[in-house]
Structure formats: structure tokens, C-alpha cells
């Protein structure tokens, strides 16, 4: 969570809000913030840290592990209409990549801005070419887009 906190300003500038959720109580969230997170990221975690001690929310989102009684690393990108645009779920030992999160949101924001007329190919970054799906593009992607631009 400290890594997301460190990039919170970047996310805010993109018009993005963050909510974190675990089965810990909001009291424990306070202790974690005071004793550890505040030492890892400047100012600690600035966004709301939610408590889902019953796992009720995690169950509906498909991230609650009944056997362990904890929630897996589920990350959901939700657009301004409340629609889920992206889901990533990792088992606990592997952390997320905040840069990839930011890249995906930029891509979804670009698609939304063009009202879905443009699509962002693999590895797209702002400034890189997009594709305009339509009858003329069928079978022509190889002319419009090179695999190397994915990396």
C-alpha cells in the first residue's frame, strides 16, 4: 500500500481516487499507518483504508480466501460510471506494479475520451499510436502497428 501511497499525487492529478480494503479493523489501520506506513511513504497512506472484517465485500469481489480468512491482492479499476474496467488478482507473496496500474488507467481514460473510437494496443503508453477499429482495419493491423512498439 505504501507504493500506491507514494504515487497518490500522480493518481490524483489523473482524477483517480484510491480505496484500500483488508479484513483488519479500522483501528489496526490507524496503528499500521502510525507505526509503519508513515515511515515508508511521505505522509503515509492518504486515502481511506477500509475495514471488511467479515469478508462480505471481498466475497462479492471474488478475492476472499475462506480458508485463510484474508483477502487476496485484488485490484479493480472502476470508471466514473461505476463500471469495472480492469481486474488483477495476485496471491499474497507477490506485490503489484503501480506503474502498470497507472499505464492501464491512462489507456482506459484515453479510450473513454475518444468515446471508444480508439483502442490502445499492447504495451501502449501516451503518445504511442492507437488503433481505430473498423472495417478498414480488418487484416491490416500488421501495417498499422508493429510488435516492437509494445515494449
Amino acid at each position: 500500500m505504501a507504493a500506491v501511497a507514494a504515487k497518490f499525487k500522480v493518481l490524483q492529478d489523473m482524477g483517480v481516487e484510491v480505496l484500500s480494503v483488508s479484513v483488519d479493523s479500522h483501528f489496526v489501520h490507524k496503528m499500521w499507518q502510525d507505526y509503519e506506513l508513515s515511515k515508508m511513504a511521505d505522509g503515509g497512506v492518504p486515502f481511506p483504508m477500509l475495514s471488511d472484517s467479515s469478508g462480505n465485500i471481498g466475497k462479492v469481489y471474488g478475492v476472499y480466501d475462506e480458508d485463510a480468512g484474508v483477502e487476496m491482492r485484488g485490484r479493480f479499476i472502476i470508471d466514473p460510471d461505476g463500471v469495472v474496467q480492469a481486474i488483477e488478482i495476485l496471491t499474497p507473496p507477490v506485490g503489484r506494479n503501480v506503474n502498470e496500474l497507472i499505464r492501464q488507467i491512462k489507456a482506459f481514460q484515453h479510450v473513454r475520451k475518444t468515446k471508444g473510437e480508439e483502442a490502445t494496443p499492447s504495451g501502449w503508453q501516451p503518445g504511442k499510436p492507437t488503433l481505430k477499429p473498423g472495417p478498414d482495419l480488418v487484416g491490416k493491423v500488421w501495417e498499422e502497428w508493429k510488435v516492437e512498439s509494445a515494449f
Binding site: 500500500m1 500506491v4 493518481l11 489523473m14 482524477g15 483517480v16 481516487e17 484510491v18 480505496l19 484500500s20 480494503v21 483488508s22 479484513v23 483488519d24 489496526v28 489501520h29 496503528m31 499500521w32 509503519e36 481511506p48 477500509l50 471481498g58 469481489y61 478475492v63 485463510a68 484474508v70 483477502e71 487476496m72 491482492r73 485484488g74 485490484r75 479493480f76 479499476i77 472502476i78 470508471d79 466514473p80 460510471d81 461505476g82 499474497p92 507473496p93 507477490v94 506485490g95 503489484r96 496500474l101 488507467i105 482506459f108 481514460q109
Partner: peptide, 23 residues
Amino acid sequence: VSLSDYLGKWVVLCFYPGDFTFV
């Protein structure tokens, strides 16, 4: 906090295993 408070904004919802865990 309600998710519906954030309608009109982009939201990243992050679940994680627990406070004071290591990753």
C-alpha cells in the same frame, strides 16, 4: 465510506491480505 460516494470519478479499489504483512 461507500463506493457510490465516488460515482463520477475513477476509482482504484485495492484489496490486500493484511496490515503489517510483508509485501
